[in-house]
Design a protein around this nucleic acid. Structure first.
Length: 333
DNA sequence: CTCCTGTTCC
DNA sequence: GGAACTGGAG
Protein backbone atom coordinates (compact mmCIF):
# COMPACT_ATOMS: atom_id res chain seq x y z
CA UNK A 1 0.00 0.00 0.00
CA UNK A 2 2.68 2.48 0.96
CA UNK A 3 4.66 1.01 -1.89
CA UNK A 4 1.93 1.78 -4.37
CA UNK A 5 1.99 5.41 -3.50
CA UNK A 6 5.77 5.56 -3.71
CA UNK A 7 5.84 3.95 -7.12
CA UNK A 8 3.11 6.10 -8.49
CA UNK A 9 4.91 9.21 -7.28
CA UNK A 10 8.07 7.88 -8.84
CA UNK A 11 6.38 7.40 -12.20
CA UNK A 12 5.00 10.91 -12.16
CA UNK A 13 8.33 12.40 -11.24
CA UNK A 14 10.04 10.46 -13.96
CA UNK A 15 7.54 11.41 -16.63
CA UNK A 16 7.70 15.08 -15.85
CA UNK A 17 11.48 15.03 -15.67
CA UNK A 18 11.92 13.23 -18.93
CA UNK A 19 9.82 15.67 -20.85
CA UNK A 20 10.91 18.93 -19.29
CA UNK A 21 14.36 18.46 -17.91
CA UNK A 22 16.17 16.43 -20.53
CA UNK A 23 15.17 18.76 -23.31
CA UNK A 24 16.79 21.63 -21.43
CA UNK A 25 20.09 19.93 -20.70
CA UNK A 26 20.69 17.57 -23.55
CA UNK A 27 19.82 18.34 -27.14
CA UNK A 28 20.24 14.64 -27.95
CA UNK A 29 18.71 12.65 -25.14
CA UNK A 30 18.94 8.90 -25.57
CA UNK A 31 15.44 7.62 -25.91
CA UNK A 32 14.63 4.52 -23.95
CA UNK A 33 15.69 1.82 -26.45
CA UNK A 34 13.24 -0.75 -25.26
CA UNK A 35 10.35 0.72 -23.40
CA UNK A 36 8.18 -1.77 -21.63
CA UNK A 37 10.67 -4.61 -21.29
CA UNK A 38 13.34 -5.21 -18.68
CA UNK A 39 12.54 -1.87 -17.17
CA UNK A 40 11.72 -0.65 -13.74
CA UNK A 41 9.25 2.20 -13.87
CA UNK A 42 10.48 3.02 -17.34
CA UNK A 43 14.16 2.94 -16.39
CA UNK A 44 16.24 0.91 -18.81
CA UNK A 45 19.10 -1.31 -17.56
CA UNK A 46 22.10 1.12 -17.57
CA UNK A 47 20.04 3.68 -15.75
CA UNK A 48 18.77 1.04 -13.40
CA UNK A 49 22.32 0.26 -12.28
CA UNK A 50 22.88 3.88 -11.38
CA UNK A 51 19.49 3.91 -9.77
CA UNK A 52 20.46 0.98 -7.58
CA UNK A 53 23.65 2.65 -6.45
CA UNK A 54 21.77 5.73 -5.45
CA UNK A 55 18.76 3.82 -4.27
CA UNK A 56 19.26 4.29 -0.56
CA UNK A 57 19.71 8.02 -0.73
CA UNK A 58 17.02 8.29 -3.34
CA UNK A 59 14.56 6.40 -1.22
CA UNK A 60 15.28 8.40 1.86
CA UNK A 61 15.28 11.82 0.34
CA UNK A 62 13.18 11.95 -2.79
CA UNK A 63 10.73 9.11 -3.02
CA UNK A 64 9.57 9.44 0.53
CA UNK A 65 9.75 13.16 1.00
CA UNK A 66 8.72 14.89 -2.18
CA UNK A 67 5.48 16.78 -2.19
CA UNK A 68 4.36 16.43 -5.77
CA UNK A 69 2.66 19.79 -5.73
CA UNK A 70 6.03 21.54 -5.52
CA UNK A 71 7.54 19.69 -8.47
CA UNK A 72 7.63 22.57 -10.97
CA UNK A 73 9.63 24.67 -8.51
CA UNK A 74 11.97 21.84 -7.72
CA UNK A 75 12.61 21.22 -11.41
CA UNK A 76 13.45 24.85 -11.95
CA UNK A 77 15.73 24.88 -8.92
CA UNK A 78 17.38 21.59 -9.78
CA UNK A 79 17.95 22.73 -13.36
CA UNK A 80 19.86 25.80 -12.18
CA UNK A 81 21.75 23.86 -9.56
CA UNK A 82 22.82 21.02 -11.83
CA UNK A 83 24.27 23.11 -14.66
CA UNK A 84 27.83 22.63 -13.51
CA UNK A 85 27.68 19.00 -12.61
CA UNK A 86 25.46 17.57 -15.29
CA UNK A 87 28.22 16.50 -17.69
CA UNK A 88 30.20 14.87 -14.92
CA UNK A 89 27.22 12.92 -13.67
CA UNK A 90 26.27 11.93 -17.18
CA UNK A 91 29.79 10.65 -17.87
CA UNK A 92 29.26 8.35 -14.90
CA UNK A 93 26.39 6.91 -16.86
CA UNK A 94 23.61 8.80 -15.18
CA UNK A 95 20.61 9.86 -17.15
CA UNK A 96 19.00 13.24 -16.78
CA UNK A 97 16.46 11.57 -14.57
CA UNK A 98 19.10 10.25 -12.23
CA UNK A 99 20.94 13.57 -12.13
CA UNK A 100 17.66 15.20 -11.31
CA UNK A 101 16.95 12.75 -8.55
CA UNK A 102 20.34 13.35 -6.98
CA UNK A 103 19.91 17.09 -7.15
CA UNK A 104 16.34 17.12 -5.96
CA UNK A 105 17.46 15.19 -2.91
CA UNK A 106 19.54 18.20 -1.95
CA UNK A 107 16.67 20.59 -2.38
CA UNK A 108 15.38 21.67 0.93
CA UNK A 109 13.81 24.87 2.09
CA UNK A 110 16.31 26.35 4.52
CA UNK A 111 15.62 29.16 6.88
CA UNK A 112 18.18 30.28 9.40
CA UNK A 113 18.87 27.43 11.77
CA UNK A 114 19.24 28.32 15.46
CA UNK A 115 22.69 28.25 17.04
CA UNK A 116 23.93 24.94 18.40
CA UNK A 117 20.84 23.04 17.25
CA UNK A 118 22.91 19.97 16.45
CA UNK A 119 24.49 19.89 19.90
CA UNK A 120 21.08 20.36 21.47
CA UNK A 121 19.62 17.51 19.43
CA UNK A 122 22.55 15.27 20.29
CA UNK A 123 22.18 16.13 23.97
CA UNK A 124 18.50 15.26 23.93
CA UNK A 125 19.28 11.99 22.13
CA UNK A 126 21.69 11.10 24.92
CA UNK A 127 19.16 11.94 27.61
CA UNK A 128 16.61 9.82 25.72
CA UNK A 129 18.89 6.81 25.24
CA UNK A 130 17.41 4.94 28.20
CA UNK A 131 14.04 4.92 26.40
CA UNK A 132 12.11 5.19 29.62
CA UNK A 133 9.50 7.63 28.41
CA UNK A 134 5.86 6.59 27.97
CA UNK A 135 6.17 7.21 24.23
CA UNK A 136 8.75 4.43 24.02
CA UNK A 137 6.31 1.78 25.21
CA UNK A 138 2.96 3.31 24.26
CA UNK A 139 3.93 5.19 21.09
CA UNK A 140 2.16 4.74 17.79
CA UNK A 141 4.41 1.88 16.70
CA UNK A 142 3.77 -0.06 19.89
CA UNK A 143 0.42 -1.48 20.92
CA UNK A 144 -0.98 0.21 23.99
CA UNK A 145 -3.63 -1.50 26.10
CA UNK A 146 -6.54 -0.07 24.15
CA UNK A 147 -5.06 -1.17 20.81
CA UNK A 148 -4.32 -4.63 22.22
CA UNK A 149 -7.92 -5.04 23.29
CA UNK A 150 -9.20 -3.93 19.89
CA UNK A 151 -6.76 -6.35 18.27
CA UNK A 152 -7.90 -9.26 20.45
CA UNK A 153 -11.44 -8.57 19.30
CA UNK A 154 -10.49 -8.32 15.66
CA UNK A 155 -11.38 -4.66 15.62
CA UNK A 156 -8.46 -3.16 13.76
CA UNK A 157 -9.95 -3.50 10.30
CA UNK A 158 -12.44 -1.21 8.60
CA UNK A 159 -15.04 -3.92 7.91
CA UNK A 160 -15.13 -5.32 11.46
CA UNK A 161 -15.20 -1.87 13.04
CA UNK A 162 -18.03 -0.94 10.70
CA UNK A 163 -20.05 -3.95 11.84
CA UNK A 164 -19.18 -3.59 15.54
CA UNK A 165 -21.39 -1.84 18.05
CA UNK A 166 -20.20 1.63 19.02
CA UNK A 167 -20.75 0.79 22.71
CA UNK A 168 -18.46 -2.24 22.33
CA UNK A 169 -15.69 -0.12 20.88
CA UNK A 170 -16.26 2.42 23.62
CA UNK A 171 -15.82 -0.19 26.34
CA UNK A 172 -12.77 -1.69 24.66
CA UNK A 173 -10.84 1.56 24.33
CA UNK A 174 -11.85 2.83 27.78
CA UNK A 175 -10.17 4.53 29.64
CA UNK A 176 -8.32 6.45 26.90
CA UNK A 177 -9.06 10.13 26.88
CA UNK A 178 -12.23 11.11 25.04
CA UNK A 179 -13.15 7.46 24.52
CA UNK A 180 -16.71 8.35 23.58
CA UNK A 181 -15.73 10.75 20.83
CA UNK A 182 -13.01 8.40 19.65
CA UNK A 183 -15.39 5.45 19.42
CA UNK A 184 -17.83 7.43 17.31
CA UNK A 185 -15.05 8.82 15.09
CA UNK A 186 -13.65 5.31 14.67
CA UNK A 187 -17.00 4.10 13.34
CA UNK A 188 -17.32 7.04 10.95
CA UNK A 189 -13.74 6.64 9.70
CA UNK A 190 -14.20 2.88 9.17
CA UNK A 191 -17.28 3.55 7.04
CA UNK A 192 -15.44 6.11 4.92
CA UNK A 193 -12.42 3.82 4.49
CA UNK A 194 -14.68 1.00 3.42
CA UNK A 195 -16.66 2.98 0.86
CA UNK A 196 -14.00 5.34 -0.47
CA UNK A 197 -10.68 3.55 0.06
CA UNK A 198 -11.47 -0.14 -0.33
CA UNK A 199 -11.02 -0.75 3.38
CA UNK A 200 -7.61 0.91 3.54
CA UNK A 201 -6.81 4.34 4.91
CA UNK A 202 -6.25 7.27 2.55
CA UNK A 203 -2.65 7.81 1.51
CA UNK A 204 -2.53 11.56 1.11
CA UNK A 205 -2.39 14.31 3.69
CA UNK A 206 -5.40 16.08 2.23
CA UNK A 207 -7.62 13.00 2.31
CA UNK A 208 -6.51 12.07 5.83
CA UNK A 209 -7.45 15.56 7.04
CA UNK A 210 -10.98 15.07 5.71
CA UNK A 211 -11.55 12.20 8.17
CA UNK A 212 -13.40 13.10 11.39
CA UNK A 213 -11.04 13.33 14.36
CA UNK A 214 -7.95 13.51 12.16
CA UNK A 215 -6.17 16.84 12.40
CA UNK A 216 -2.69 17.93 11.33
CA UNK A 217 -0.88 16.06 14.08
CA UNK A 218 -2.41 12.68 13.28
CA UNK A 219 -2.38 13.21 9.52
CA UNK A 220 1.36 13.86 9.52
CA UNK A 221 1.96 10.96 11.90
CA UNK A 222 0.14 8.61 9.54
CA UNK A 223 1.99 9.94 6.49
CA UNK A 224 5.32 9.62 8.34
CA UNK A 225 5.08 6.20 9.97
CA UNK A 226 2.17 4.63 8.09
CA UNK A 227 3.04 5.56 4.52
CA UNK A 228 6.73 6.48 4.79
CA UNK A 229 5.84 9.60 2.86
CA UNK A 230 7.02 12.63 4.77
CA UNK A 231 4.99 15.72 3.95
CA UNK A 232 5.63 17.53 7.21
CA UNK A 233 6.63 17.27 10.85
CA UNK A 234 4.18 15.74 13.30
CA UNK A 235 3.92 18.52 15.87
CA UNK A 236 2.12 17.69 19.07
CA UNK A 237 1.97 19.62 22.31
CA UNK A 238 5.44 18.44 23.39
CA UNK A 239 7.17 19.37 20.13
CA UNK A 240 5.33 22.69 20.20
CA UNK A 241 6.29 23.49 23.80
CA UNK A 242 9.93 22.37 23.61
CA UNK A 243 10.68 24.09 20.31
CA UNK A 244 9.43 27.32 21.82
CA UNK A 245 11.40 26.85 25.04
CA UNK A 246 14.55 26.24 23.00
CA UNK A 247 13.87 29.31 20.87
CA UNK A 248 13.81 27.11 17.77
CA UNK A 249 10.64 28.63 16.36
CA UNK A 250 9.00 32.03 16.36
CA UNK A 251 6.12 33.91 14.81
CA UNK A 252 6.91 34.99 11.29
CA UNK A 253 9.28 37.96 11.40
CA UNK A 254 9.25 38.28 15.19
CA UNK A 255 10.94 36.78 18.23
CA UNK A 256 7.61 35.88 19.83
CA UNK A 257 6.68 32.30 20.55
CA UNK A 258 4.48 30.49 18.08
CA UNK A 259 0.90 30.23 19.26
CA UNK A 260 -0.20 26.94 17.73
CA UNK A 261 1.31 23.59 16.80
CA UNK A 262 0.62 24.38 13.14
CA UNK A 263 2.60 27.60 13.37
CA UNK A 264 5.40 25.66 15.06
CA UNK A 265 5.37 23.07 12.30
CA UNK A 266 5.77 25.67 9.59
CA UNK A 267 8.54 27.49 11.45
CA UNK A 268 10.42 24.28 12.25
CA UNK A 269 10.20 22.99 8.70
CA UNK A 270 11.90 26.16 7.47
CA UNK A 271 15.25 25.11 8.85
CA UNK A 272 15.24 21.58 10.28
CA UNK A 273 16.86 19.18 7.76
CA UNK A 274 14.35 16.69 6.40
CA UNK A 275 16.14 13.65 7.75
CA UNK A 276 15.15 14.89 11.22
CA UNK A 277 11.47 15.47 10.43
CA UNK A 278 10.35 12.02 11.50
CA UNK A 279 12.69 11.28 14.46
CA UNK A 280 12.15 14.73 16.01
CA UNK A 281 8.69 13.68 17.17
CA UNK A 282 9.45 10.62 19.35
CA UNK A 283 12.63 12.36 20.50
CA UNK A 284 10.91 15.49 21.80
CA UNK A 285 7.77 13.72 22.96
CA UNK A 286 9.82 11.43 25.23
CA UNK A 287 11.98 14.34 26.37
CA UNK A 288 8.83 16.29 27.14
CA UNK A 289 7.34 13.40 29.12
CA UNK A 290 10.39 12.85 31.29
CA UNK A 291 12.53 16.02 31.58
CA UNK A 292 11.17 19.04 29.74
CA UNK A 293 7.73 18.57 31.26
CA UNK A 294 4.97 21.11 30.73
CA UNK A 295 4.86 22.02 34.42
CA UNK A 296 8.12 22.38 36.36
CA UNK A 297 10.64 21.19 33.79
CA UNK A 298 13.63 19.38 35.32
CA UNK A 299 16.27 21.87 34.15
CA UNK A 300 18.59 20.64 36.91
CA UNK A 301 19.07 17.27 35.25
CA UNK A 302 18.86 18.54 31.68
CA UNK A 303 22.24 18.37 29.96
CA UNK A 304 21.41 21.05 27.40
CA UNK A 305 20.19 23.73 29.81
CA UNK A 306 23.25 25.82 28.91
CA UNK A 307 21.82 26.19 25.40
CA UNK A 308 18.22 26.71 26.50
CA UNK A 309 17.01 30.30 26.79
CA UNK A 310 14.15 29.13 29.00
CA UNK A 311 16.20 27.04 31.45
CA UNK A 312 15.40 27.68 35.13
CA UNK A 313 12.98 30.42 34.15
CA UNK A 314 9.80 28.62 35.09
CA UNK A 315 8.66 28.32 38.69
CA UNK A 316 10.13 25.15 40.26
CA UNK A 317 7.17 24.77 42.62
CA UNK A 318 3.76 26.35 42.71
CA UNK A 319 4.06 28.26 45.94
CA UNK A 320 3.19 31.87 46.63
CA UNK A 321 3.13 32.86 42.99
CA UNK A 322 0.47 30.45 41.86
CA UNK A 323 -1.60 31.07 44.98
CA UNK A 324 -1.56 34.76 44.18
CA UNK A 325 -2.47 33.98 40.61
CA UNK A 326 -5.34 31.75 41.73
CA UNK A 327 -6.85 34.33 44.05
CA UNK A 328 -6.48 36.94 41.35
CA UNK A 329 -8.36 34.82 38.84
CA UNK A 330 -11.08 34.03 41.38
CA UNK A 331 -11.91 37.71 41.74
CA UNK A 332 -14.54 38.19 39.09
CA UNK A 333 -16.29 41.49 38.40
C1' DC B 1 -12.21 30.48 23.07
C1' DT B 2 -14.93 25.94 25.23
C1' DC B 3 -16.02 21.18 25.24
C1' DC B 4 -15.00 16.30 25.50
C1' DT B 5 -13.25 12.37 29.79
C1' DG B 6 -10.84 10.20 33.59
C1' DT B 7 -6.60 10.43 35.79
C1' DT B 8 -2.95 12.47 38.12
C1' DC B 9 -0.76 15.61 40.57
C1' DC B 10 -0.75 19.41 43.67
C1' DG C 1 -11.24 20.46 45.76
C1' DG C 2 -9.59 21.53 41.52
C1' DA C 3 -6.30 22.51 37.76
C1' DA C 4 -3.70 20.47 34.06
C1' DC C 5 -3.36 17.06 30.91
C1' DT C 6 -4.20 15.00 24.65
C1' DG C 7 -5.84 16.78 20.09
C1' DG C 8 -9.54 17.91 17.47
C1' DA C 9 -14.38 20.13 16.53
C1' DG C 10 -17.16 23.81 16.62
Amino acid sequence: MALNLGLRSLCRIRMSNQTNFSSKTDPNPNPNPNPGSKSFNGVSPPELRVFSRRKKKFKETLLETTDLSVLPDIEEFAYKKTKGSVSQRKSEGASDVIVMEAEVSRVQPRGVAPNNWQQVLEGIRNMRSSEDAPVDTMGCEKAGRAIQRLLQNGLLAADTIDKADEATIKSLIYPVGFYSRKASNLKKVAKICLTKYDGDIPSSLEELLLLPGIGPKMAHLVMNVGWNNVQGICVDTHVHRICNRLGWVSRLGTKQKTSSPEETREALQKWLPKEEWVPINPLLVGFGQTICTPLRPCCGVCTISEFCPSAFKEAPSPSKFSKLKKSASRRKP
